[in-house]
């Protein structure tokens, strides 16, 4: 009986061990599967990250490129501006400013300059107009007594 019991127990133990092993194997398998999935996920994420980063880099590159093109065209505008009559006196200042500014900034700078130049020109026209008028009137005032004397004679 005892032997049977021992045998039984042995087989039970074996079974249990087998079951245990099976469970373990199962667990291991599952873990392996999980790991595999996780790894795949991780790989995917990494790939995604890389491509995202590449895209970002490309985007930045393109933006930079575009900004460069934009700045180029803005600089061209600036160039025509400083070569124009009104813009001539901003040449030195403009060249300095242009290095610091982006396209939009340059455009704004030109618009500001044009507005400033227009105001300057307007005040120049004002002052010239007045200067000529006042000078002629002052001359006339001094000439009047001479003319009147001549008329009497």
């Amino acid at each position: 009986d005892e032997h049977r019991e021992i045998l039984n127990r042995k087989s039970i133990i074996e079974k249990r061990m087998k079951a245990l092993e099976d469970v373990e194997a199962e667990q291991q398998q599952q873990e392996a599967r999980k790991r595999k999935i996780k790894q795949a996920e991780e790989e995917k994420a990494e790939a995604e990250r890389i491509s995202r980063e590449a895209e970002e880099r490309e985007r930045i590159r393109q933006a930079r490129e575009q900004a460069k093109v934009l700045k180029q065209s803005a600089l061209a505008e600036l160039d025509t501006f400083i070569k124009s009559d009104v813009g001539a006196k901003y040449r030195v200042e403009a060249t300095k400013e242009a290095q610091k500014l982006d396209a939009e900034g340059i455009r704004k700078y030109i618009t500001d300059c044009v507005a400033r130049a227009r105001a300057d020109l307007d005040s120049k026209l004002d002052s010239l107009e007045k200067q000529f008028d006042y000078e002629e009137r002052a001359k006339h005032e001094h000439e009047l007594p001479l003319l009147k004397a001549l008329k009497k004679a």
């Binding site: 007045k130 006042y134 000078e135 009137r137 002052a138 001359k139 005032e141 001094h142």
Partner: peptide, 9 residues
């Protein structure tokens, strides 16, 4: 006249 213009402006 030009020199004394400022007085008449």
């Amino acid at each position: 006249v030009k020199a004394t213009l400022s007085s008449s402006i």
